[in-house]
Design a protein around this nucleic acid. Structure first.
Lengths: 180, 180
DNA sequence: CACGGCATATATCCGTTCGATATATGCAAG
DNA sequence: CTTGCATATATCGAACGGATATATGCCGTG
């Protein structure tokens, strides 16, 4: 899904600035679902505006720079719906953490343990934040995705916690063998 | 992690062609860990070769086009190790599936159910393929990542299976309300 | 039998995206 | 007082993706 569609999705839920759209893909509702950078969001909004799918309104603010609030048009809603019913592309995952873990045998055991502990802590934090987000009044799909995220992150944190010692020990042992 | 590092990682485990490196990020060991396209792999290999981090050897083949097999140099191994001990970037996830799910209320209930069932089937298939890959003789890190993948995909499939009916019913019910 | 699709291979092109940067207004902490 | 952060918009140049081109075969279908 391209950035234009992602922007339409955010705007379908309510007016937003480019900055707020970026936030939605960081700590907001889409934070673990898709990514979008400023470098792509602003040109996308400009193209969507040009195509009549969104409308931007400039506003002055006190103590803050001016902002431009975008709202979705009916044409934008149609386009968004078409994108929703198109066949989804494949999930794409880029995880430095997992890639590094794959080569655990090349790392000092202490560094490895620290890496895993940091990730466990990260998962626990995410889980806490997610649990604090009451989705009781959310739409069915939002609740569903929220629950799925909780289940997956819980499983990951649990696995990491349950197996970190064993990986550490094995890397320690083989690290010693290499040194001999 | 950039594509050059990813290529070094694959080559650190053994010589490979550009095509084989791509395969490693599809159905191979890195298939759920990172992504890399031909458009990025070939220029990366060229740059790595230029920098003396890999070495390419052209080979003729029978019944197949010629190929170029790359091997990693000592300089390449050093660079790879430096990348491994650098702080990892954040995981990046792009999931059309999850994004669409978020807007389940906008979809026909039957289409939604089909989408989820397809994803459940996909997870089950992945799990089967992963279980069939015996990692008993693999390195500790490979075994760890393999086990983590199994745990996470199992949790996802289970959650989807356990909650798909409820989502379907809720979207059906609210779809009827909209029609009235 | 012929054609299309697939697999194995390399390489490139152009559109898309990213991350850093620039600019602006304030506020808070050291 | 200076730096870093938050809120905002916008752009630039590097990195990447997906399609395409080319090549050699093989296999399945009409």
């Amino acid at each position: 899904m391209d950035i234009k569609t992602l922007c339409l999705g955010v705007l379908s839920r309510g007016d937003a600035t480019g900055y707020e759209i970026k936030k939605a893909f960081e700590e907001g509702p889409f934070g673990h679902i898709h990514v979008a950078s400023f470098g792509a969001i602003y040109p996308a909004l400009a193209a969507l505006s040009e195509a009549g799918m969104v409308q931007g309104t400039e506003m002055a603010q006190e103590k803050r720079p001016d902002k431009k609030v975008f709202s979705i048009t009916e044409r934008g809603r149609s386009a968004f719906f078409e994108a929703l019913i198109a066949p989804p592309g494949e999930d794409k995952v880029r995880s430095d953490f997992l890639f590094i873990l794959f080569f655990a045998h090349l790392l000092p055991a202490s560094r490895l343990a620290a890496l895993i502990d940091r990730r466990i802590a990260w998962y626990r934090e995410c889980l806490q934040r997610m649990e604090a987000c009451s989705y009781e009044n959310g739409r069915a799909g939002e609740v569903f995705v929220h629950g799925l995220g909780l289940a997956v992150y819980q499983a990951a944190a649990d696995y990491l916690s349950a197996h970190r010692d064993r990986l550490h020990d094995e890397v320690s042992a083989s690290g010693r063998m290499v040194a001999e």
